[in-house]
Nucleic acid binder design. Structure first.
Lengths: 137, 137
DNA sequence: CTAAGGATTGACGTCAGCGTCAAGGCAACC
DNA sequence: GGTTGCCTTGACGCTGACGTCAATCCTTAG
């Protein structure tokens, strides 16, 4: 199958697939006319990548999984490197949760003290961003 | 005081201060030689911006607070708009916490099933990114 | 006089993961 | 042979909050 069909079946875009290839995550033989030719295994591979991204892994984090599948394993997480990524990412997520909890506390505290000071706050016209004197975005 | 001192006292960099100015958050009169001239109120203002960023607000979110201080209020969160930002951000943080919790569950599940399948996973040499055929980064 | 240490503006780089556009080639159908 | 649809590569855009570099100016101390 060609790149468009793979994209549809895997639930992504051709642009993403070409990007994965540029990052070395996906390789495809070319037909005589230069078109990429994919098989069923690629559908699974892309599916694995997307699933991993859904649980918070970066594209770079999926490398070990891809390598594991290429090495002939049934699943991408049959290899030590992949497990390691799981554990590292879990630690990162936990750290993020903690940090975000602190952020939440800070926000709640600020909100509470603001409300305590002024049961009925005032209103100020508004402050739109100026015509942006260079430093273009 | 000039921009370097303000940066030191507020705990940031001159680049950040100039950026804030380009975004309309900070305004300073100029001396005869073109140097920006700041006063004590700017130290407080920049401090407010940094504190707000620390609790998760984007620069854009700090606009109402800056406007509130400019309007002569003691604190940046004495105005209705600021309170609104607090509440909106709190909702965002809660949503993020929920989502991150789900990500965590997904990770834990994947880790568990991978470990269940293979108490002693294999090892694969490694898959370094290729020489990057265009799509440069 | 010169060197050092700030200050100024402008412009490009960074990180992730693609989106979007452009110009053109290939294949099939009417 | 013209249209449609899919494919190719290349290149720039986007988000946020600045970092970094370059070229030049101002002030002060030695």
């Amino acid at each position: 199958m060609r790149i468009g069909e793979l994209a549809r079946r895997a639930g992504t875009t051709t642009r993403a697939l070409r990007f994965y290839e540029s990052q070395g995550l996906l390789t495809a033989p070319r037909a005589a006319n230069g078109y990429r030719e994919y098989g069923e295994e690629h559908v699974r591979l892309v599916g694995e990548i997307l699933t991993l991204q859904a649980v918070g892994l970066s594209l770079d984090d999926t490398r070990p999984f891809v390598g594991c599948l290429r090495a002939g394993h049934e699943t991408g997480d049959s290899c030590a490197d992949s497990i390691e990524v799981y554990e590292r990412k879990l630690a990162e997520v936990d750290a993020l949760l903690t940090q975000l909890g602190e952020v939440r506390s800070g926000l709640v505290a600020k909100l509470a003290s603001a409300l305590a000071r002024r049961p009925l706050p005032c209103v100020v016209p508004g402050s739109a961003p100026p015509p942006n004197e260079q430093e273009s975005r």
